[in-house]
Each structure stands twice: as structure tokens, then as C-alpha cells.
């Protein structure tokens, strides 16, 4: 699993690739979000288009990112979730809570609209 960070204006885009299956690597994404918040960046897009699978621990990490940003008056958008990952969002009804977009570019643009 790897994370790439890109800042577009006032929005941070975290592109994750691989599997979000728990362990320190997975939680490093949440640490990254927390450090972005500390740097006053509270609009974050997590791009999951290169993520093959998310398990319950990966899901927990995304929920933590959502809560941390919400508590900092920020906002999380999740972009590019594959069908398999989307089915997990449906099962957990997180689809009704997470703000999802098809692509990271659209997610960034929607912050500016």
C-alpha cells in the first residue's frame, strides 16, 4: 500500500494504491489527514481508484478520517471507489454518510463549486 499527496489550491488529494487491509500502513493515512488538519488543510479527497480492496480495518480508518475532518469543520470526499469497495460502502450504509465522487478531479472541482 502506498499514499501519494498532492495539494490542489486548498484541497489535499491523497491517492492510495494497493489494499487497505489494516496495520500501520493503513493508519498512516489517518495520521496524514491529522497532520493536514494541523497545517490548516481541512478539505481532503481520498482517491481509492487504485485500491483493490478495503477490509473492516481499512473502513475504520476511513471512518476515522471522516470524523477527524468533521470535528475540524472540514470535509472528506472519497473518489474513485471500485465496485467491490462500493459494495462495502453499501453494506455498511456508509454510502449515505461519505461524500463520494467518481474521480478525484471531480471531487476537487466540487469543493470549488
Amino acid at each position: 500500500m502506498a499514499v501519494k499527496e498532492k495539494i490542489v489550491d486548498d484541497v489535499a488529494v491523497l491517492t492510495i494504491s494497493g489494499k487497505l487491509m489494516g496495520g500501520p500502513e493503513t493508519w498512516a493515512v489517518h495520521s496524514k489527514v491529522k497532520s493536514l488538519i494541523a497545517d490548516k488543510v481541512n478539505k481532503v479527497v481520498i482517491d481509492l481508484s487504485k485500491v483493490k480492496w478495503v477490509n473492516s480495518q481499512g473502513l475504520g480508518m476511513l471512518m476515522s478520517c471522516f470524523t477527524s475532518l468533521k470535528n475540524a469543520n472540514g470535509h472528506l470526499k472519497i473518489a474513485g471507489a471500485t465496485q467491490k469497495v462500493n459494495s462495502l460502502f453499501m453494506l455498511t450504509r456508509l454510502i449515505t454518510v461519505f461524500d463520494t465522487c467518481e474521480t478525484a478531479d471531480r471531487a476537487v472541482a466540487s469543493f470549488h463549486n
Binding site: L59, M63, T67, M90, L91, T92, R93, L94, T96, V97
Partner: peptide, 10 residues
């Protein structure tokens, strides 16, 4: 057919 938010989240 089941779906629901995990407990303790919201």
C-alpha cells in the same frame, strides 16, 4: 438483505 451503519460511528 441487510445494510446498516456500524455501531458507535454516528
Amino acid at each position: 438483505e441487510t445494510a446498516g451503519l456500524p455501531l458507535g460511528f454516528l
